[in-house]
């Protein structure tokens, strides 16, 4: 056994004793956070306390600050992709006018909303869409002229439908809600939003 090797082993051992407790503290804090969150939120209106329970994707993204290791990221994206429920009629474009109304509405699923109130798409909260609407948010990218750039063949329609149904299937930890996967919007409503984005007559493409 040479001296260099011995020093190397000793260093590794001492590093291990340093690193392991840090990890132990971190995971103890993670566990305590979940315990506190589960205890300290309560039902209010339609927002029930069990909403704080994370699914696998939410837990993964929270744990890694939205930057999970690639292997885990790709694995969960595949699972999300596989869970997309595609329209049985293989049609993806609805009515852009209904889509514009949905895009304008920021309502839905808060404890001050009622169960019977239909949820909106919340689109303008985060995206620029029609040039006419100047009160748009900037958390997501601008979608002005999206259909002009993307084209509206069947592949594009399927892509946009899938993206709206589950935006996490392409990018596990992005900010956009999973409108189909989480049953926020119906199949017909998602089709109306596809039309808003891709129909040449939609104000998004004017």
């Amino acid at each position: 056994m040479n001296a260099k090797w011995m020093i190397g082993t000793a260093l590794t051992a001492s590093l291990a004793t340093l690193v392991l407790p840090v990890q132990a503290v971190e995971s103890k804090l993670d566990a305590k956070t979940i315990e506190i969150v589960k205890r300290d939120f309560q039902d209010k209106g339609i927002a029930k306390a069990d909403r704080v329970n994370q699914d696998a994707l939410q837990a993964l993204c929270s744990k890694y600050g939205n930057k999970p290791p690639l292997e885990l990221k790709h694995k969960i994206e595949k699972q999300q992709q596989a869970a997309i429920k595609w329209p049985a009629d293989d049609k993806y474009m609805g009515d852009w006018k209904a889509g514009e109304k949905l895009a304008q509405s920021g309502r839905g699923m808060t404890w001050s909303d009622k169960a019977e109130d239909p949820a909106g798409g919340n689109c303008y909260n985060c995206h620029q869409l029609s040039a006419k609407e100047i009160a748009y948010g900037t958390i997501g990218p601008s979608l002005l002229h999206f259909g002009v750039k993307q084209g509206n063949d069947l592949d594009s329609q399927r892509y946009v439908y899938g993206r709206l149904y589950n935006a996490k299937a392409d990018n596990a930890c992005n900010n956009m809600p999973r409108f189909g996967h989480m049953k926020i919007l119906t199949e017909a409503q998602i089709k109306d939003l596809v039309a808003l984005l891709l129909d040449p007559e939609s104000p998004v493409n004017k």
């Binding site: 804090l29 956070t33 929270s62 699923m109 996490k168």
Partner: peptide, 21 residues
């Protein structure tokens, strides 16, 4: 430390955390 974790805690029907906005 726990507060920081709650800030980044994603959950609910929209997958939002404080940090989303």
């Amino acid at each position: 430390e726990i507060g920081r974790r709650i800030f980044n805690y994603r959950a609910g029907p929209y997958d939002f955390a404080c940090s989303t906005c």
